[in-house]
């Protein structure tokens, strides 16, 4: 099982991703309006999807961490790994999107609601990871970063709406959307390949985070009933 995750998952992911990209770069037809530049879609869109999946995982882990009465290092490590992997994929998604924007829109950046929300999302999760670095106490770090993750995630739809209103007073550039069935297949294959790689990254990063947590809290965990006494102390204070 361990070997399968360590070697099988990334190799399968790379294989499927390579197949998807080959289909996208060589087999799929060029777009009617965007030409060959449209082939950026097969790297850009899967990156964005996987970034969304990772951020959603981070949000779910943060909420369940706060709902759980006692500290769960597994949920905390899940949140940490998802935020880091999501930040990587989201940054790549934004960079590829900006490169795509240059030949199609004529500019690298436009204050489009989706672009703006994503930029704010990346800044939010950078802040999240920086906060995790700056708090030594693992308990406090887990709780505080969960709060920050929830507040940041709630913010994204609000940002989206407000930027849409803000932009609606200016001119909004629209991108033409034409999806050929021959474009759907490479897109799906690349997305599955990237999904496998994302899962591999998440699992590896999760193990890393969990090992760090266990090293940090090694002493209290080694003592029997240590967690029980912490709970009763908390009860007394409350």
């Amino acid at each position: 099982m361990n070997k399968l995750i360590k070697w099988g998952l990334p190799l399968a992911g790379l294989g499927v991703l390579a197949a998807g990209w080959w289909l996208g770069l060589a087999w799929a037809p060029p777009d009617r309006e965007m030409g060959d530049v449209q082939r950026i879609m097969y790297v850009h869109v899967p990156l964005q999807w996987m970034a969304m999946v990772a951020m959603l995982l981070n949000f779910v882990a943060a909420v369940s961490y706060l709902l759980r009465g006692n500290a769960s290092w597994k949920l905390d490590s899940t949140a940490e790994s998802a935020a880091e992997v999501g930040l990587l994929l989201g940054t790549l998604g934004m960079v590829t999107g900006a490169i795509w924007g240059r030949p199609t829109w004529g500019v690298y950046w436009s204050w489009d609601p989706r672009l703006t929300s994503e930029a704010i999302m990346l800044v939010t999760y950078t802040g999240y990871l920086v906060l995790r670095r700056f708090v030594e106490d693992p308990d406090k770090r887990a709780t505080w970063s969960a709060v920050v993750a929830i507040l940041g995630a709630i913010n994204l739809p609000i940002v989206w709406f407000s930027v849409r209103w803000w932009r609606s007073l200016h001119q909004v550039q629209s991108s033409p959307k034409t999806v050929d069935p021959q474009m759907v297949l490479p897109l799906r294959v690349s997305a599955i390949g990237l999904l496998l790689i994302t899962i591999f990254f998440l699992i590896t990063r999760y193990r890393l985070a969990l090992a760090e947590r266990q090293a940090e809290v090694a002493l209290p965990d080694a003592l029997p009933e240590a967690s029980g006494s912490v709970v009763s102390n908390a009860h007394k204070v409350a």
């Binding site: 800044v123 920086v130 700056f134 913010n155």
Partner: peptide
Amino acid sequence: LLPLLLFPLVIP
């Protein structure tokens, strides 16, 4: 830390 966390959040 405070501006880093707060600024993106209060954009709307």
